[in-house]
Structure formats: structure tokens, C-alpha cells
Design a protein around this nucleic acid. Sequence first.
DNA 1: TCCCGAAGTTCGATTTAAATG
DNA 2: GCATTTAAATCGAACTTCGGG
Lengths: 348, 348
Amino acid sequence: MVTIRDVAKESGFSSTTVSIVLNDAPLARYIPPVTKKRIEKAAEKLGYRPNQFARSLRSKRSHTVGVMVFDMTDPYCTLVLRGIENTLYQASYLPILTDVHNERSRFERYLEMLLDRRIEGLVVLANWLFLDLNLLADLEKSSIPTALIAHELKGDSMSSVIVDNEVGGYLALEHLHALGHRKIAFIRGPKTLADSSPRWRGIRKCAKACGLELDERLVVDLPESRDPLSSFEMGQRLTENLIKQRRQFTALLAFDDVSAYGAIRGLAKAGLRVSDDCSVIGFDDVAASSLCTPALTTVRQPMEAMGADAVGIVLEGINCVLEKREVTAHHRKVAPELVVRESTRRLG
Amino acid sequence: MVTIRDVAKESGFSSTTVSIVLNDAPLARYIPPVTKKRIEKAAEKLGYRPNQFARSLRSKRSHTVGVMVFDMTDPYCTLVLRGIENTLYQASYLPILTDVHNERSRFERYLEMLLDRRIEGLVVLANWLFLDLNLLADLEKSSIPTALIAHELKGDSMSSVIVDNEVGGYLALEHLHALGHRKIAFIRGPKTLADSSPRWRGIRKCAKACGLELDERLVVDLPESRDPLSSFEMGQRLTENLIKQRRQFTALLAFDDVSAYGAIRGLAKAGLRVSDDCSVIGFDDVAASSLCTPALTTVRQPMEAMGADAVGIVLEGINCVLEKREVTAHHRKVAPELVVRESTRRLG
DNA sequence: TCCCGAAGTTCGATTTAAATG
DNA sequence: GCATTTAAATCGAACTTCGGG
């Protein structure tokens, strides 16, 4: 390994001068261009690369941000991660990726490891979450700027970036209603999932505004599960039950895209076609939703932007701690967007 | 921050002894249990956590592995990443995730950053790849154990883990043939993609074995593109063209799952139903394939296992360099598996 | 006083060599 | 010589202090 001393020797200057020149430190003002050239040449020639360990040891900076995902296999993650990666890249930060598998022990172990690595910030993707977030309380005192994606939060200990679930729910029902649907089935999210209730609130709000009466017998709930893909199977089963019980409905509003896929499968098994016999709308706009046939009408979360936003907040927080200003938590609630595709159609 | 010296002071011993005890170094044999207890108590009490920068500076180890993905948005990545993460976790390594976006400049920048971080190993997910892998040549001399996933490689500079594309192609056609299909359309991969030709070779091999004649007019190629999702659009367009030209076929074998989705969309637009009017088979078994309706019959790559395998090879390589044994490259070609679902059916 | 450069200290842990009884 | 403990050197870069011209 070639060190700064090697460059010093090669260039004929001291390591101090080399350090000053190569880092373009304030004192570099005083160093004549000839010296700089000589040093830069020597560094180039030897292929000198500063040792980040030594650097970090002194500066106490890692230029690293932790990314904690609760379940990578959730298709929701992909685009969010892209947004996170891209924004970090532009700021020359590198992400350490951890996948907690929705397990408490893994969460704790990873958190410890990240802290040990002196991450300067943390982004937590807590969408399909069945862990107590109090586990993150340790972070507060650690003074590591943290942003939670997809999980609402109050207070000023951590920032949060979520989609406006209530507006999303409203949008979804409004769309179905505008298409003439009146008998609508609902697959709600698991009660223990934070997203579930605001989405339902938006739905009720819209129903009220439209003068639509919600038939309770057409409303079912996904059960709690650690696995985001379980909502497929449950979506299917719940839909099949609804059909078996001969409940009539011309449209179905699913909790998310994956449960919508399940519903579509359930309908297909019963010989019902989307969208001819029944319209289906999802939530999220996961990548597969534009790829499947019929393409899924859904309420889009701007996932890439949310990832980028979370990183932006964390980066700002990092700057705050560097400049010893106070870190202020931000709570963003971004607008969802209705994406009309092929799985919904006008009634009649 | 509490340092080892703080623990030394608190316990009444020197930092040397503290280090020896807490690391259970060889010399710890000579240290009486009482001393150990006292030191451990002090460390516990102060909440001592060793500074990884200082540690790494001395040991020249980072306990970090670089993960380089060529395009995160490729649905192929998800499960591979899960396999990588899980295996690294068990070995107490942490991954730095980089997404090259199939861009040369990004590749080079990230590679430099990873090298600067002194990654001990590198896993490259090079599935949908349009970059010259010679860019990785720098790695050879760096003596960082590297494994490439989804890109065949010879030689002993780097390891590789790929699926047996030829067998996969064979399996796919064999399945369609066994179902009675004789007029089969083929969407081949881009010529510049390494997977394309072995898959086609397997297909031809199977055709020969079955005595099946391949109709060249039913064979189309995906164009080259940096974006893995472009194969959806192209799959659709190529299928529509085939139909417009009134080419008769009862089954379609797509290059991968995403192009199969495109083909299904194309068929649907023409009023053709999968699998009643046309069977479709994909390749990969991406998560969405079991979720869409009809569920896609496909040739599965054991993605999670491949990720785990790649990490296993890299970890072994790391041990080799630590023990100054020679690092030997491994080239794994894993067996694909036919997954029969709903998109294919017996003819007639 | 201003400009330039070097010697020496620091960051925190590990390890070698050596000092105690 | 042995068990027990520690001072001092080391890893590589960055910064503080100081001196010479």
C-alpha cells in the first residue's frame, strides 16, 4: 500500500505538505504551484489513494449512511432503494444495506453493527412493519439523523416520509364511483399495519362525499402477517369467500397491489374477468402493476421520490450536526397519484 | 465516545490488558478470571464499543463486501440480493450496495469508492449487462475476491455463478413440446446479451431431439437496450407484429419473464387469451410471475441460492487471502427448474 | 510580518517487547 | 522461568505548532 509518506519521499516534500496539497486545505493557498505540481505528479505516479480508515479515525466521519429495510422481498422496496441510492451517490455517500426480515433480533444486531460503523445517517424503510419502533429509541440519543419511509411519525426525534394514505384511499374510491360502481368490495389492510386506518378513513370520507353507502358485508380485512407477499394469498382467499357467499359487487378496492393481484386470481378462479365482470384497483403502483395483463389501475406512491426525499432530509441533518446546528425533524406527507390502467372500467 | 483507555481507567488496568481480555486474544490465557471479570464489568458499565476505524486501520480489515448491481430496477435483483444479504449477515459482514445504472462512468466511480473503502470482497450482479467487463480487470491485481452472478466467465481471475441457460432453454421447449405444441414462436434475447445464445442453443438442441422443426419466421429478437424493462415493451411489440403478419402459433417461448409479460399483453390486445388461445413460457421466475393471472409458467433460476453461493465463494476467497493461500476461482453453473403454472396448457 | 515547509501530536485499538514479583 | 501486567510502537492521515528565510 502506498502511503502519504511514500508520496512525500517521492516528491521530496514532507507528508504535511502532501496532505495540505492533496486535500486542498486552507493552507494550500501559500504553497507555490510548482510544489503542488510536483506533489500531484508523485501521487499520480505512485497511484496514491488515501486510507479511509486513517481518515475516518481522525475526522470521525464515515461518509456512510445506513439503509435498513424491513423486508427486501416486498416489491415496494425496489424503487425506493433506487431513489435512496441515487441521491446518496450524488452526495458521495455510500449506503450499507441491511434487511431486517421483520425480525427483532436481526433488527437489533444490525442496528448495533451500523452504529459500530459510525454511520452518519440512517434511512429506514418501514413499510410492511410488525416491529415496535420503540426499538429505534436508542437512536435518539445517538444523534444520528434518521428518516423513516412509509411510516408516519410525530415528534422531533426522527423524520418521516409517507404517502398521504387518506388522500390515496379517497382517490381510489372516487375513481370507482366515477365509473359508476356502487356495489364495491373492500379488502382492508391488517389492523396492526399503520397504513390501514388512514386509507380506510379516506375511503369513508369519499363515500360520504359521494353519498355512497358502504356495505359492511363487502368489507374484509387482511390478517396480520410478517410476510408482505402473504397479502396475495389472503387477497385471493378473501375474494373467493366473498364470491362463495354470493355477495354481489362490481368492483373491488384492495389494500395494496399485491392483495389486488390476489383478488384478481380469486376472481379468475371463479370465472370472473377483470375488468369485464369486475373492476379492481390497487395501491402502491409496484413495478409489476404496469406489466401484468390487464394492467392494474392503482394509486401510485412516488416511491423513488420518497427515497430521495428521505435521503435529502438525512443529508441535511448530517450537515446540521457537522455545523453544530440543531437537527430538526421533517415530516413529509407526499401526494399519491391515481394511475388509471386496464383493471377498472365504466360499469354497464 | 468511550474509548479503551476509559475502560482501562475504570477497571484499574492498562489498555493493553483491556484489549487482550475483550478480544479474548491468545495472551488472555494468562489473565486470571478476576481480572477478566473486572474489565468486562467496566466495559459493560461504560457501554464501551470499540472504534471500528481504529481497528480497521490496524488490522487492515473492513468486514465489508461490495455489492455492485447493474440495474436495481430489474426484478431479477430482489431475490439475489436477499441471498447475498442473508449469507453475509451470517458471516458478520456488511454489504455496501451500489447500483451502476448500466453506466460506465458510474461503474468506474463506484469501483473506486469501494476500493477506497477497502472492501474485502466484491459481488457483481451482472445480469442485464451492456458494459465491457474488462472494466473489472483492475480488480485482478487488487487481489479482492470477486464473484460475478449471472454472467459466464472463464479463467481464474474471478469466480462466476450462472444458471445453466442451455438446460433452461431445453426445459422450456421440452415442456411446450410435451404439451403438444408444434407451432411455436420464439422471442430471443438481445444478441449482445450473454444469456441469449446458450438459451437458444438449448432450444435448438431440444428441437432436434424432439424432431421439431423451428419456423424461422416465428423467431424474433429483442433489440439491445440498457433498460431491462424495455423487454416488456419490445416483447409486446414483437408479438403484435407476429400476429399482424398472421403467423400462426399456439405457444410462445419468451426470453425472460418480463418479455413474456409483454407477449401476454400483445396477445391480449389482439384478443388472444393465455393459455386458451396461446401458451406462454418465460424464464427467471421473477416474483411477479407467481402473482400475475394467469400465473406464468417459467424456467426458474434459483436466485436466492445463487446470491448465497456467490457470497460463499467470496468469503472463502477472503479466508484464502487472510491465510495467504492462493485464491482459486470457482465457476458454478446451477440447474434451472421448470415451474409449471397457468400460462401453458395442453394443445387441443 | 509574510510565506513556506517540517516536526510532532492526535485519533483509538492492537501488538510486540519488556518489566514486574 | 513463569504468570501477570504494561509501556511503547504501530497503523495512515490530518492538524497544530513552530522555525527559517
